[in-house]
């Protein structure tokens, strides 16, 4: 069964890097939701999400980022999305989210966006 992998690393500057792989759909989105909530609970609101390994995303998956964005920004942070595959970018385009989220080509570029 296709699954979601989530790898979280703390970074300098009060940032967290969330590296995702696999399938982010109505079956798996709650795992990511809980992980991002844990990051907020630890006091971090600058979150970089590496999407390079995500093979599939549905609106349930995008909803996790939508639900987290306003909260991160309220706390002075942001949700920055890195290197989405063509398929994933297409979903963000269809939803009109590509103009709303900061999307970068590399983690380094995402880190710089917080400066």
């Amino acid at each position: 069964m296709p699954e979601l992998s989530i790898d979280i690393n703390e970074m300098d500057g009060g940032q967290s890097l969330v590296k995702l792989g696999g399938f982010l759909d109505a079956h798996t989105f709650e795992q990511l939701d809980e992980s991002i909530q844990d990051i907020f609970d630890s006091g971090v609101s600058k979150i970089i999400v590496d999407l390079a390994g995500v093979e599939y995303i549905s609106s349930a998956g995008a909803g996790v980022f939508i639900g987290s964005l306003a909260l991160a920004q309220e706390k002075g942070g942001n949700i920055v999305l890195v290197n989405p595959t063509e398929n994933v970018k297409e979903v963000f385009d269809l939803l009109g989210l590509s103009q709303i989220f900061t999307i970068t080509a590399s983690v380094a570029e995402a880190q710089e966006s917080f400066v």
Binding site: I66, L95, G96, I100
Partner: peptide, 22 residues
């Protein structure tokens, strides 16, 4: 309204919109 949707942090309610887009 996607901007309002994001501002309100709504996690769902986009599926039908996506189907219509496609």
């Amino acid at each position: 309204d996607i901007k309002q949707h994001v501002q309100q942090g709504k996690r769902n309610g986009l599926g039908i919109f996506l189907i219509r887009q496609i």
